[in-house]
Nucleic acid binder design. Structure first.
Length: 648
RNA sequence: GCUGCUGUAGCUCAGGGGUAGAGCACUCCCUUGGUAAGGGAGAGGUCCGGAGUUCAAAUCUCCGCAGCAGCACCA
């Protein structure tokens, strides 16, 4: 038999017979390693222990100590064990796919009846039985036709379809967990007992379209999470509990920021506190925009359908637009208008007024543009995904050869805004041409290349997001995450060769002839609504001082202090701090608790001593200890803190 | 939009075919208390909307609306 040489992570190598499995390699090293081994990385690829090695290779044997591999295997085996449990309880249920995801896995089933919470309990119990049985996991490579015959005979149409989607040259692997078998690429553990029985939990059941396609059947998806041990599971469940407390919908109510109601689904009623955050943020953005060389404009809410037809939005997005038909007295025909779902066509109208020279370019035009989109009901989510919102929108009209520089300038601008707002880190995605799009392939080639080049020149290597671009051009997405880790696109930067063409935007170039400008669509926050939602969750409601709606509460300890309380409040207000008095007939304990819950960053307590010495006792949110500070000093330091970061 | 779940006081929730419940919040009274809930009293409800079943519906059924989770969508 041929000999092969395997090289271990420590650099040593040993010779083995060709075709040896990692399990045998582990056994050749020590009995304990053979028992603890869960998988192996061979030539950089993660395989299970039964995978034969045919040639010289590098090899690393993994145990539960290797987090990445262990968690992947535990979760993947959980998916199989769960599918087996489901089919043991309900043999008629059809299985589909069950990938590892986030902190666990999901598995999609086709079953008439939806799973109930009680069902989940039963499945969990059955899974524990399977784990405790320590059933061996084994694998075989099967001939494609044998797999097809098997799944056709056992009535598993989804598996047959999956089989057909596997490229022709890939070997088809079947995996057994005990007697239960599934088509799978692997790798898997050695036996079911290697899954910790007390470190997984079935979380929820929800529906999902087969293959993510809304024209295909809906399946029942069960989500689970799994970890290496019970403590990690507990930590995760605890994290979710804590994250729920940071939910912007909950904090929005607790901090009295905003509310929403049935009569205006997907639209925000901003309360005084919330509107303070909003306007503070808007003032900041307005200053940043001016400093960034933008001119600010404002355009109509309600625009005749004609413009949307010209821009192409009517054709593509009519279903998602709020249509307003005006039947004026004596009018021969109805005027059909739409609430603007975005601002770009309106900005082109402003650009098109008068003749523009190449000297005017790049022309950076910004608007706090209120938009309305009829979002699908299921998409609405607090103030993060709404039907009425305001973008910090902007369009840069420029020459093709200015795209790269303008993109670099913009990325710089966005970075400084995100930095100021407490997001030094953010993710960038690059989305290229979608299937349905406007514009020729040559134009798309140009746009994609220019954008990508500029992004890389700015020192960013974006995540690729194939086919996700806008219909008129490729885009960069700047992504932030909410309390439980869901992605939200906030900023965006898009190259558009199409709209200037459709709306006939031109400028006079040096050659005296009309030329077509390129349009860069960009939003930094995205929408105020979404960004404030993210801000709330990111800071758990404890907004930076300059953004906090209620910055200081001055609380009396005894009523004799009331006059001085008002004096302190007045002094703070005069210095530009949002301060309010609390002279209610309540104990200081009560007041401290209430304003702490309300996320007020600074509480100043005033009792007899403070009145006498003209001091205040300052307590910062989240801190236990207090400090006694002279009035002048506290006014000065809090006033300094209230200044927005761009003005410091 | 799709699947499932939910909708009872301002909030969080219990209850459940026949007088509507709690805690917190609110109002009033007592209390002037030194850093996360002082004590007492009171007021507060179209039980999401509509239809049906029933002697009787907040409760059961159906249809809507809204919210939640996931999927799909996101100019």
């Amino acid at each position: 038999m041929a000999q092969i040489s395997l090289t271990f992570p420590d650099g040593n190598s040993r010779d083995y017979d060709a075709g040896i499995t990692p399990a045998d390699v582990a056994a050749s090293i020590s009995n304990s390693l053979a028992k603890k081994a869960i998988s192996a990385t061979v030539n950089g690829e993660h395989h299970d222990l039964q995978w034969p090695i045919e040639g010289d290779a590098s090899i690393a044997i993994h145990t539960l100590k290797d987090d990445d591999q262990a968690l992947e295997l535990i979760r993947h085996d959980c998916a199989h064990i769960m599918a087996r449990a489901v089919q043991e309880i309900w043999p008629d249920v059809k299985v589909t796919i069950g990938p590892v995801r986030d902190n666990g896995w999901f598995y999609d089933f086709d079953r008439e009846e939806p799973f109930t919470p009680e069902d989940l309990g039963a499945i969990e119990a059955k899974m524990k039985e399977i784990i405790n049985a320590r059933d061996a996991v084994r694998t075989e490579v099967w001939d494609r036709e044998k797999v097809r015959a098997h799944y056709e005979a056992s009535g598993e149409p989804y598996k047959v379809e999956l089989l057909d989607r596997i490229p022709g040259d890939e070997p088809i692997r079947m995996y057994w967990h005990g007697e239960w078998m599934d088509l799978c690429r692997g790798p898997h553990l050695q036996h079911t007992g290697q899954v910790p029985a007390d470190a997984f939990k079935l979380m929820s059941v929800a529906a999902a379209y087969w293959l993510g396609d809304n024209t295909r059947p809906m399946l029942q998806r069960i989500y689970g999470v799994a970890f290496k041990n019970r403590d990690d599971l507990k930590k995760h469940l605890n994290f979710l509990e804590e994250a729920a407390k940071r939910d912007h919908r909950r904090l929005g109510r607790e901090m009295d920021l905003f509310h929403m109601q049935e009569e205006a689904p997907g639209q925000v009623f901003w309360h005084p506190n919330g509107w303070t955050v909003y306007t503070e943020l808007q003032d900041y953005m307005r200053r940043k925009q001016r400093a960034g060389g933008y001119v600010e404009v404002n355009t109509p809410q309600l625009v005749n359908r004609r413009l949307w037809e010209e821009s192409g939005h009517w054709e593509k997005y009519q279903e998602h637009m709020f249509i307003v038909e005006v039947d004026e007295d004596h009018a021969r025909e109805k005027a059909v208008n739409a609430m603007k779902p975005m601002n770009c066509p309106c900005h082109v109208q402003i650009f098109n007024q008068g003749l523009k020279s190449y000297r005017d370019l790049p022309l950076r035009m910004a608007e706090f543009g209120s938009c309305a989109r009829y979002e699908p009901s299921g998409a609405l989510h607090g103030i993060m995904r709404v039907r009425g919102f305001t973008q910090d929108d902007g369009h840069i009209f420029c020459r093709e050869d200015q795209i790269e520089e303008e993109t670099a300038i913009y990325i710089d601008y966005l970075t400084s805004v995100y930095q100021d707002l407490g997001f030094p880190e953010f993710r960038v995605k690059f989305s290229d041409r979608p299937e349905t799009r406007a514009g020729s392939d040559e134009v798309w080639d140009k746009a994609e290349e220019a954008l990508l080049k500029a992004t890389r020149a700015a020192g960013i290597e974006p995540e690729m997001n194939p086919g996700e671009g806008a219909f008129y051009g490729p885009k960069l997405e700047f992504v932030l995450t909410d309390a439980i880790g869901r992605d939200w696109q906030c900023g965006t930067h898009q190259v558009d060769f199409v709209l200037p063409e459709r709306l006939d935007a031109t400028y006079i170039a040096e050659d005296g002839a009309k030329h077509r400008p390129v349009m860069l669509h960009r939003a930094c926050l995205g929408s105020f609504e979404r960004f404030i939602g993210i801000l709330i969750e990111e800071h758990s409601g404890k907004l930076p001082f300059w953004l906090a709606p209620r910055q200081v509460v001055v609380a009396s300890i005894v009523s004799e202090a009331d006059d001085f309380v008002h004096e302190v409040v007045d002094a703070l207000k005069a210095a530009g701090v949002r301060a309010e008095a609390d002279i209610r007939n309540e104990k200081i304990n009560f007041k401290v608790r209430e304003h702490s819950v309300g996320k007020v960053p600074a509480i100043l307590a005033i009792g007899r001593q403070e009145v006498e010495n003209r001091t205040v006792t300052l307590r910062r949110l989240g801190e236990k200890q207090t400090s006694v500070v002279p009035l002048d000093e506290v006014v000065q330091s809090l006033a300094a803190e209230a200044i927005a970061p761009d003005l410091r």
